[in-house]
Design a protein around this nucleic acid. Structure first.
Length: 822
RNA sequence: GCCGAAGUGGCGGAAUGGUAGACGCGCCGGUCUCAAAAACCGGUGGGGGCAACCUCGUGUCGGUUCGACUCCGACCUUCGGCACCA
């Protein structure tokens, strides 16, 4: 901000306020459910009300608003709503550190952010605003929870959960980044707690089906695919009946059943339920120590790939039923209880991890697949490719991919196991030991057990008083009045669930709520959801590629199966904007390069800030904010302000230069086409560049007396309509000053005439062997033979073709002729 | 390690098989001014040439093509995601 700003030559702030007020009073952007035009639902991911709107928010919201405005001008009835994702950790952490109640803090922030949003001049219909921390919203979280519970999709389980020792709360797997808490970066640990889960895994297979999308970035699909992590294999039992236990077999999952004859050991997760029973007496002490050691380890330590493969023998064995071999059993921390069966078979010859484990523990390495070229595999590595079966009994000599099927058939026919699919994705843990969230509507009764709160008793209000600072216990447990209740079933004494829901529950269905944000007979009005949904265009950051988008898709499918909605996917199209940086570096307080949009709006007006954000680079790639860069847009706004208010009386009556007039008209229609197509595809930067070209052209045409009043008027009118979605305030003000009736925002986007846009003369590029040698101005209608003749006659070409044979003439109509010579 | 995206002037970027560098920033020169700022006009990839022009040039090396920033292969660098998943 040390750079001096260009001075704005018009009363920007006044204009901003004037029109924001007028639009508000007129309700020009009010969304009507019964509007006959085709609907278009354009949704931007709603923000956390964590304080001030920073330039990152502007970068997300302003271009999205421009695109929604463009759709409106295309003739759609556009729903482009805004709300606040008001529950959750950021609000609560901030409230804790400032000693203000989360509700107060959140609502104050919302008021401030709403004011800042208005300064941007967006087309939000504030009558549709939603705030998730209010009972009118979160009671439907509770209602939806009860529906999921009824469907068996919400359940309780004790499970090792990820625990952040700093936030003193359980985290979802998705909230763990590299073994650290997403919010505070503290390495996470594990704990066993009784928690509520949503069974997203029930939909794992369907969530892999992306066929319901119209347009999603490939990158996001890949990330979701990897996150769900489907693998196909065989679940097979190894025999442990010789121990006379209740369990007669040890089950394992493998994607490589073709290597079953090469199993030389098995490894169980330290938490595996059979570990206790199978451990030999003389191994008990060391096994127990290892199990404890594992529990102490943080996720980050345990999952480090650099770590040596530790493990402890149980002093027990299992029998491979295919060849009758006894294989020793180990426990090791690299085997996870949460994936497959919690036990893996060790095939050191054909799995690199097993190979390292075998080397470390002196276990035999038995080759059962030979490389196809017969070359030796060994030299310190496992052979993990396909090949020819060896040492595999009846399957010898078979190609290993065929053996996969043959062995699976045998395993199934013998009843030793079956084909199976495993997913990496785990059920969604929604319980939070936090105050600032939706209370889970469950009551525990000594007589009746777990009892859902009756729908008529909703909402279960979040009490204003509780010790919400983290203590390790759920804050709501400190409020006696809240906890003690009567059982809805038997009327006896009971206590409430004191955990609250993950905030991602709120955002999993908010897109439905916007269809009827104040509906009080259900989470949404079914007729209006049917009208508005699914979302036609969703925009937001790629950081929500996995959790939010997957959860919202899951909710939609669950609601569909309950008969509440009729579609499979909530978001037809998805566009991810990039990240804005400043001066080549990420914005941060320590760097001192944080851009506060309010300062710029104050001095340059909202439109310069909006337009610059869209001009500084392609939206999907993010951009670099520079204080000198914004001056360019400010200058341009100054120039068009003066240009369009020039006195048209001064223009000549009759311009004799018909060619110049046609040229200007052509430029206008070419610009309309370009801006239309660019705005359509979120290419704001090139749309603005095209408008700059047009304004430069118009200024030149005026100065050179090559334009008359009617054409000038037409150009200015269409220019302002095209400017309207980008710079709504200035476009409206100029529209009025030029003498058009209110409002520019109710104009349809201009149409271009391809005939008028077509060039009469073209530059014919002349190449010799692909190298540029000449450019010829020729009529666009030139015939191929004329063009070729002209080109060969060019004096600039001749020196390059002399004494050479012309082998070929490549003709690209309207573009070039390439002369191919020896 | 695996998956994905991206590498173009001094800078942000434009051009997705056909004139590389649109548009803007910055810089240089000029007009105006006592002067500066602003504004306006002109110039601005490198090398050579008085000039017309020539030549090199889109991370590196190869390939396809009449023609490649663009398509294909390998590599290098940067960024993002996932990471002992059996």
């Amino acid at each position: 901000m040390t750079t001096r700003h260009v001075e704005i030559r018009y009363p920007a702030t006044e204009i901003d306020r004037k029109w924001q007020k007028r639009w508000e009073n007129d309700g020009i952007y009010r969304v009507k459910d019964d509007d006959p035009r085709p609907k278009w639902y354009e949704l931007t991911m709603y923000p956390y009300p964590s304080g001030d709107l920073h330039v990152g928010h502007w970068y997300v919201m302003a271009p999205a608003d421009c695109h929604a405005r463009f759709r409106r001008m295309q003739g759609y009835n556009v729903l482009h709503p805004m709300g606040f994702d008001a529950f959750g950790l950021p609000a609560e952490n901030a409230a804790i550190s400032r000693g203000i109640h989360p509700h107060q803090w959140t609502m104050d922030n919302i008021a401030n952010m709403r004011r800042q949003f208005r300064s941007m001049g967006p087309m939000y219909d504030w009558k549709r605003e939603l705030i998730t921390c209010l009972p009118e919203y979160y009671r439907w979280n509770q209602w939806l929870f009860l529906q999921l519970y009824k469907k068996g999709l919400a359940y309780q389980a004790e499970a090792p959960v990820v625990w952040c020792p700093s936030c003193k709360t359980v985290l979802a797997n998705e909230q763990v980044v590299n073994g650290r808490c997403e919010r505070c970066d503290t390495p996470v640990t594990r704990r066993a707690l009784r928690q509520w889960f949503f069974s997203i895994t029930s939909y794992a297979e369907e969530l892999l089906d992306f066929s319901g999308f119209t347009d999603w970035p490939e990158k996001i699909l890949t990330m979701q695919r990897n996150w769900i992590g489907r693998s196909q294999g065989v679940e097979i039992a190894f025999d442990i009946s010789h121990y006379g236990l209740e369990e007669r077999e040890l089950r394992t999952f493998t994607t490589r059943i073709d290597t079953i004859y090469g199993v030389t050991f098995m490894v169980l997760a330290p938490e595996h339920p059979l570990v206790e029973k199978l451990t030999a007496p003389d191994q008990r002490a060391v096994v127990q120590a290892y199990v404890e050691e594992t529990q102490r380890q943080t996720e980050i330590e345990r999952l480090s790939t650099e770590k040596e493969k530790t493990g402890i023998p149980l002093g027990a064995y299992a029998v491979n039923q295919l060849n009758g071999e006894r294989v020793p059993l180990y426990i090791a921390d690299y085997v996870l209880t949460t994936y497959g069966t919690g036990a893996v078979m060790g095939v050191p010859a054909h799995d690199q991890r097993d190979y390292e484990f075998a080397k470390k523990h002196g276990l035999p390495i038995s080759t059962v697949i030979a490389p196809p070229d017969g070359a030796g595999a060994e030299d310190g590595r496992a052979f993990t490719e396909e090949g020819t079966m060896v040492n595999s009994g009846q399957f010898d000599c078979m190609a290993s991919p065929n053996a996969v099927e043959a062995i699976a058939d045998l395993v199934e026919s013998k009843g030793w196991g079956h084909r199976a699919v495993s997913y990496r994705i785990r059920d969604w843990l929604i319980s939070r030991q936090r105050y600032w969230g939706t209370p889970i509507p469950i009551v525990y009764c000594a007589a009746c057990g777990t009892v859902p709160v009756p729908e008529d008793d909703l909402p279960v209000l979040l009490p204003p008083n509780a010790e919400f600072k983290p203590t390790g216990k759920s804050p709501l447990a400190t409020n006696e009045e809240f906890v003690h209740t009567t059982c809805p079933s038997c009327g006896g004494e009971a206590h409430r669930e004191t955990d609250t829901m993950d905030t991602f529950v709120d955002s999993s269905w908010y897109m439905f709520r916007f269809a009827s944000p104040h509906y009080d007979k259900g989470p949404f009005d079914p007729a209006l959801v049917e009208k508005w949904l699914p979302v036609d265009q969703y925009t937001g950051g790629a950081e929500h590629a996995v959790m939010h988008l997957l959860y919202a898709r899951f909710f939609t499918k669950a609601l569909r199966d309950m008969g509440l909605v009729k579609f499979d996917e909530p978001f037809l199209r998805l566009f991810n904007q990039g990240i804005i940086i400043a001066g080549g570096a990420k914005m941060s307080k320590s760097r001192g390069n944080v851009i506060n949009p309010d300062d710029y709006v104050e001095s340059l007006g909202a439109d310069v800030v909006r337009t610059y954000l869209m001009f500084l680079g392609p939206w999907d790639q993010g951009g670099d904010w520079t204080d000198t860069g914004i001056n360019g847009v400010a200058r341009w706004m100054n120039r068009i302000w003066d240009l369009f208010q020039r006195d048209t009386e001064k223009l000549p009556e009759n311009v004799q230069n018909a060619q110049a007039l046609a040229q200007t008209r052509r430029k206008l229609h070419q610009t309309i086409e370009k801006v239309y197509n660019d705005l359509d595809r979120f290419k704001f930067n090139t749309a603005i560049a095209a408008l700059m070209e047009l304004s430069n052209h118009l200024a030149r045409a005026w100065d050179q007396g090559e334009i008359d009043a009617p054409l000038w008027g037409e150009c200015v009118e269409k220019f302002l309509v095209m400017l309207a979605p980008l710079a709504p305030h200035n476009a409206e003000e100029l529209w009025e000053r030029v003498g058009h009736p209110y409002s520019v925002h109710n104009q349809p986007f201009p149409k271009w005439d391809p005939t008028l846009a077509a060039e009469e003369m073209i530059t014919l590029v002349v190449q010799v062997n692909g190298r540029l040698r000449d450019r010829l101005e020729v009529p666009a209608s030139i015939s191929e033979s004329d063009a070729k003749e002209l080109v060969l006659a060019s004096p600039k070409v001749r020196p390059h073709t002399q004494n050479k044979t012309v082998k070929n003439l490549v003709y690209v109509p309207g573009r070039l002729v390439n002369i191919v010579v020896d």
